[in-house]
Write a protein that binds this DNA or RNA. Structure first.
Length: 803
DNA sequence: TGAAGTTTTTTATAGACAGCATGTC
DNA sequence: CTATAAAAAACTTCA
């Protein structure tokens, strides 16, 4: 199908696409258009990665906008949100505007309401639905990218429920679901009342194969010699082989350590194939990486990068991740070894993809479990850049002939697994049931069940009554914790109930008519059931707060109980441990030996912890408690200005993990603050302070200073050491002192200006000797020395409790 | 006896969304 | 119940 044949797009859109070099639609795209993508028809497109799924979405959204509507594009990752934003912002040249909203992107409701296309993560959309954003009801088109993630145990239910709610909110709305090729795209299409485009067509050839011995055997029967020389590993041979043709490669492994180890070894391969110019650019890139964070992980990464290789996993900071991704796309980096982060994330194609490890440690399976076919296909789909590579190659590694055969059967010839809803899992249900009640989507038990019936879970579930019984358990839990109130309807049974639920009544009792059998007991039962369906559900004020804050109700319950139990003002550590033991905090596991170490810490500081510790004899629960204490201690270290490197070293985590923990704690403590206010706790201020300390990573005495723009944890400490204790001091302090503390004139001027000083200019000011003004604390150390001293004294990792 | 080299045992294991109100070194 | 790499420990070798 030719671009000219498209109708219903905004004027200028066709020219825009032609400007991008698009003349003709790919077959799946044409098929989507024929199925009504540009006419507002529902559509499920199950096509491989990089086969132009975004174009299908774009055509649907643009035609919807042209008809005067508004479109929403749901992505699974924040990184994808910014990627799509860049892409869609180009539409502004013909007058279609784009806005993004994710947890950390700035966005206000009125601002979004003016945009034609909005990009958001599924959680953010869920939150918007809960908080009743007005513009949601103006949507005429919703695109859900990577919809197969409904299968994900943690985040799938959110997407599923969100889609169901959006559909209930806007009955005529177009739904376009983009999926990887999965086993049951037809079921998803059924659920969404959508047409189905299901194909494995790809714009460039993808050859899949298995490397064994010295040969690479492809699925089309062809073979390529790739000899393994000397003691090198298979992946090294494969990387070298394709690099000599000028192609880069992507190696998927199953652990962070393996990713780092492989990158180190592959650096020896890649460093032989880079030019002098590239070497210089790589050195710059390595410096950028070192600048971002001075931890061991960064240093290792920088060392690899200098040789043209890199590793990629969630322990990297987001800056480092995008530096690596960009450099790889620019062909500067020749090879990346990565954990599966990269397969799901932003687009980073390579000529050759090597799936080295196809098994992964899975505690629930009791050991190593094979990866899903879907997952391996997602990785393999990263092979080949349309228009740039002649073809893509995806290679699995086998160590024996048998394994080679197994890999062909298991992954290359195999179809991906079907997508199964995970909504019935209790943690998911408890969150979404509360949200559904709080946002007024359901006001009776029957209404709730009716809503749940519209989910994929219900359409896939064969086990009758399962959803209902789990729902009842969840309702009990929510009522027990004071999040909802339930009220039985008046005994008369068939009365119409309260006025506001009348709207639901007509559809809520459809099953009853057939029950007028001769046996009164059956009729009684039916009546009882009908009565139960009319039970009213209402969120309490606390329940509304929990739902609005986007907390797991269980987290909220834990925090509320913890605060209620506190007789004295809680310490920072107490609060950090409290939020760390909620299910919303991603767990930090205890390593061997650490149970003892943290057991000791526990006895030392038991009094600070909120609520009752589980008995030591309940091993599992006690261990969880200690694990939370470990996380809490990490946060306390951070809030006591411990160096980043000391922390990453002590807890054996990457810089990205530290940021992640701090972010989550900040969010949870913010929520805890609202909860404290809600229950009239007297510790609201303590919570706020603990949150502020985590946010900035500083001690209590620096909180005022860090509120000045341009002053972070390090500068604040140095200023404080120099006797400048609060923003007001900055306005009167001797400029020489300020300059010597802050280094750099521009920084100093900028900070003084932010502090509201009238004459921030540093012209002609000489730095004063630092020890001139240390009088206040009697401590003449510069911040540098103090920081250095701290690092040194922290070197003994074995005793955590002694500072 | 002790440094250096080799084999065996032990150990550990992926990912990352959200509130709210603005900005690190 | 499954794997694998790296680190640590145990053991061997040789001057």
């Amino acid at each position: 199908m030719n671009l000219e044949e498209l109708t219903g797009l905004p004027p200028g859109a066709t020219d825009h696409f032609r400007g991008e070099g698009i003349e003709e639609l790919y077959p799946p795209q044409a098929e989507a258009v024929e199925a009504g993508a540009t006419d507002g028809e529902n559509l499920v497109a199950a096509v491989p990665t990089a086969s132009g799924k975004t174009m299908i979405a774009a055509l649907s959204m643009l035609s919807a906008v042209q008809r005067g509507g508004k479109a929403l594009y749901i992505v699974p990752l924040r990184a994808l949100a910014s990627e799509k934003k860049e892409e869609f912002e180009a539409y502004e040249e013909f007058g279609v505007t784009t806005g993004v909203t994710t947890g950390n992107y700035e966005s206000t409701d009125d601002w979004l309401a003016t945009k034609d296309i909005i990009v958001a993560t599924s959680e953010k959309v869920d939150s918007l639905v809960r908080n009743g954003a007005d513009w949601l009801s103006e949507l005429t088109c919703v695109v859900s990218d990577e919809v197969h993630l409904i299968d994900d145990r943690n985040r799938g239910p959110t997407l599923e429920v969100t889609l169901a709610k959006l559909r209930q909110l806007n009955p005529g709305m177009q739904v376009v679901a983009l999926s990887a090729t999965v086993g049951n795209a037809d079921e998803i299409a059924d659920w969404l009342d959508a047409a189905l485009v299901d194909t494995d067509w790809r714009p460039i050839d993808l050859q899949m194969g298995v490397h064994y011995g010295n040969a690479l055997n492809f699925d089309d029967g062809s073979t390529r010699e790739v000899p393994v020389e000397g003691s090198e590993k298979q992946e090294a041979a494969l990387v070298r082989d394709i690099l000599q043709e000028g192609g880069s490669s992507l190696v998927f492994v199953n652990s962070r350590r393996n990713a780092e180890g492989a990158a180190k070894r592959l650096g020896q391969v890649s460093s032989r194939e880079i030019t002098e110019d590239e070497r210089a650019e790589l050195a710059d890139l390595a410096d950028d990486i070192r600048d971002d964070s001075d931890t061991e992980t960064s240093a290792d990464l920088a060392d690899c990068v200098e040789r043209g290789a890199a590793f990629h996993h969630a322990g990297l900071s987001s800056t480092q991740r995008s530096l690596v991704e960009d450099a790889f796309r620019d062909r500067l980096l020749k090879v990346i070894s990565a954990t599966p982060t990269l397969a799901a994330g932003v687009n980073t194609p390579a000529r050759r993809v090597i799936v080295r490890d196809w098994r992964r440690f899975d505690p629930s399976a009791g050991g190593m479990a094979p990866l899903d076919v879907l997952e391996v296909h997602q990785m393999m789909g990263r092979a080949g850049r349309p228009g740039l590579d002649p073809y893509g190659e995806a290679v699995l590694l086998a160590k024996s002939h048998d394994e080679s055969e197994e890999l062909f059967d298991r992954y290359i010839w195999a179809d991906p697994e079907p997508v199964r809803s995970k909504l019935a899992a209790e943690p998911a249900l408890r969150t979404h049931v509360l949200a559904t009640i709080a946002s007024g989507f359901a006001r009776t038990r029957g209404g709730l069940l009716e809503f749940l019936e519209a989910t994929l879970y219900a359409s896939q579930s064969s086990e009758a009554g399962r959803l209902e019984s789990v729902t009842d358990d969840v309702l009990d839990y929510l009522e027990r914790n004071d999040f909802i109130e339930r009220e039985a309807p008046r005994a008369s049974g068939r009365s119409s109930g309260s006025p506001r639920e009348r709207e639901r009544d007509s559809s809520g009792d459809e099953a009853d008519g057939s029950n007028d059998g001769p046996f009164t007991s059956a009729a009684d039962l039916a009546e009882q059931q009908a009565a139960k369906r009319e039970e009213t559900l209402e969120a309490t004020s606390l329940g509304h707060t929990v739902s609005r804050l986007y907390l797991d109700p269980m987290s909220a319950a834990e925090i509320v109980h913890g605060l209620e139990r506190a007789d004295e003002r809680p310490t920072a550590l107490g609060l950090y441990q409290l939020v760390s033991r909620t299910p919303d905090m991603y767990e930090l596991y205890l390593r061997s030996g650490e149970d003892e170490q943290f057991g000791e810490l526990f006895y030392e500081r038991e009094a600070e912890l909120l609520g009752d510790a589980p008995s030591e004899y309940e091993e599992d629960r006690f261990e969880d408690w200690l694990a939370a204490l470990k996380t809490g201690k990490l946060l306390e270290d951070w809030a006591e200005e411990t160096e980043e490197e000391t922390i990453t070293d002590r807890y054996k985590i990457g810089p990205g993990d530290l940021r992640g923990k701090v972010d989550t704690a900040e969010w949870l403590l913010g929520a805890a603050e609202s909860l404290a206010a809600e229950i009239d706790s007297e510790w609201t201020v303590a919570v706020r302070e603990a949150r502020a300390r985590v946010e900035h990573g500083v001690g209590e005495e620096l909180l005022e200073l860090v509120s000045v723009g341009g002053v972070g944890r390090k500068r604040a400490r140095r200023l404080h050491d120099a006797g400048i204790e609060e923003p007001a001091d900055l306005r009167t302090a001797d400029k020489g002192v300020v300059l010597s503390v802050l280094k750099g004139e521009k920084t100093a001027e900028n900070i003084l200006e932010n502090a509201g000083r009238e004459d921030p200019s540093m012209d002609g000011v000489e730095p004063a000797g630092i020890d001139v003004d240390g009088a206040d604390t009697g401590d003449s150390n510069s911040g540098d020395k103090a920081a250095a001293a701290q690092t040194e004294s922290d070197d003994s990792q074995s005793s955590l409790g002694d500072f």
